[in-house]
Simulated scan of single mutants.
Amino acid sequence: MSHLDDEKIALIAMGEPAGSDADMQHLVDCESCAAEVAEMSRVALVARSSVVEGDLEAPPAGVWSRIHGELGLTTAVAADPASVVPVPVPEPEPVPVSVSEQDAADAGHPRQRTRVRSRRRSSASVWILAASMALVVAIGAGVWIARSLTPSSAVIASAELAAFPDHPEAVGQAEIDDDGDGRRTLTVTLEGDELADGEYREVWLIREDGQALISLGVLDDASGTFRVPDGVDLDEYRLVDISFEPVDGDPAHSGDSIVRGELDFA
């Protein structure tokens, strides 16, 4: 049995009218081609949305002192690394080409060997201190960046998703989170449904009058989180719906809803 070529599979996955009736029937009969269309459909859904992160800001002056206190560091590294002026390292003195007998004798003297070992230990201590400060600065910067890039989020709406008659065992929940910067996400969970071969589950926001709907993406597991597009008025699109969708290249809702519920903003 011959399979659909890659170009036709890609066009069908993006919802383009590229497949004939024979091609659609082939997708029903061929698990391999159906799986490829489903996978590329997921990629197309992800590509339709993007998240723009803001520019990183310089840490406030008090960040280092808090890091210093939390890590219990010594006073040797109490100064803010961002404000420390680097000390120029002197160039090493040239090594003499020849060594006199007296110098050779002094080099073998116990005191001279002790001074050499002391200089080596001092140099090693400087390098260890410098490496420790660099590690502490990296850890502190990582902690600050992680905290800065993790804005506080809050649940602003939720819904209990009731089962449709064809799926009496299904039950679901939904929550809308706002991260404080205007970015909203929908998290859904679904239990009690069985996914048949050649099908996938899709998450939707539906307007209250049922005349318009927005696809948020494919639900691969029992739960998933999806970005709500900017500009969507959730006072209008209050219905959360999860449906079974056949792998047929048609981006429209199949009409086979598993669960649905209305968001409560109380």
Rank of each mutant, 00 (worst) to 15 (best):
S2R: 09
H3D: 04
A10G: 11
I12L: 14
M14T: 14
D23G: 02
C30Q: 03
C30S: 07
E31H: 10
S32K: 10
V37Q: 01
A38I: 12
R42G: 01
S50I: 00
E57N: 12
A58E: 14
P60L: 05
P60A: 02
W64T: 02
W64Y: 06
H68D: 00
L73I: 15
D80Q: 15
V84W: 15
S98P: 01
S100A: 08
Q102W: 10
D106P: 05
R111D: 11
Q112W: 15
T114Y: 12
S123Y: 07
A124E: 09
A130S: 12
M133I: 14
A141F: 07
G142C: 12
I145T: 09
L149E: 15
L149W: 05
T150P: 00
A157K: 03
A157Y: 02
P165F: 08
G182H: 01
R183N: 07
T189Y: 01
L195S: 07
A196I: 03
A196C: 03
Y200G: 05
W204L: 05
A212K: 08
V218E: 14
L219G: 03
G224P: 00
F226I: 02
L234P: 05
Y237N: 02
I242P: 00
F244Q: 05
F244W: 07
G249K: 01
A252G: 06
S254V: 09
S254H: 07
R260M: 10
R260T: 09
E262A: 13
